[in-house]
Amino acid sequence: MSVSSLFNELRQTDQVFSFMQPQGATNLNIDKGVILYLEDISVSFDGFKAINNLNLYIREGELRCIIGPNGAGKTTMMDIITGKTRPDSGSAWFGQNINLLEMDEPAISKAGIGRKFQKPTVFEQLSVWHNLELCMAAPKTVFTTLKARLNGEQRDQINKVLTLIGLQDQRFLNAGALSHGQKQWLEIGMLLMQKPRLLLVDEPVAGMTHQEMDRTGELLTSLAGEHSIVLVEHDMDFVRSIARHVTVLHQGSVLAEGTMDQVQSNPKVVEVYLGE
């Protein structure tokens, strides 16, 4: 919040201050059935075009897999959606009415976009339980957080997620002590606690065994429908096992889009990616 906007707020007497407004009050408008619009987005770092005129639409309840070689701009795209990186040009809308380019990370998160990072980042010095607690969809201002105590319903919710991600026994262990695969699960659990409308999942199965991969696949498939999911993944077997709709990124823009079979038979895709 800039000083000028604070001043504006002080002058507006017909409404309460923004920090006193109830949390999560933003109403997502998805009349058209599309939850995410990325249009004409470009961004460059030191002259290198990481994203080049990218157009991408995600429908509500969809499970979309994004594949592409290294440097195709997958992670940068996620950075733009979550507010970490600002594009040089283009527009990004969440539903019909939320302009993502005007918001910072916490606001975007609050609006209903959750993200799982490529490298699992959990809060290592906190227990698994507390990791989940922090991510819970609840008011997140300073004073509510200071006074917050878990009620029974919230505890049940955490327990439910713990069971789902299979970390019930480790719930009071520091997250730093978990194995790599367990951290991946924990991060998915943290994502679920946020109850997001749109999940951005960056390489969730790296470091997992085959059984774990299968379970992750099942979990993601079951989440789709209620949530919209954008999945970035390198493991082609995994993608093939769960994908309905695949987008191939190459050099910062969309190379091909369609079902897995369509994409696989696309000669351009074969050339840049699968053929390698």
Partner: peptide, 11 residues
């Protein structure tokens, strides 16, 4: 992990 906290929704 300061950045991670932002993505969870805390200011």
């Amino acid at each position: 992990a300061e950045n991670r906290v932002r993505f969870v929704g805390y200011r």
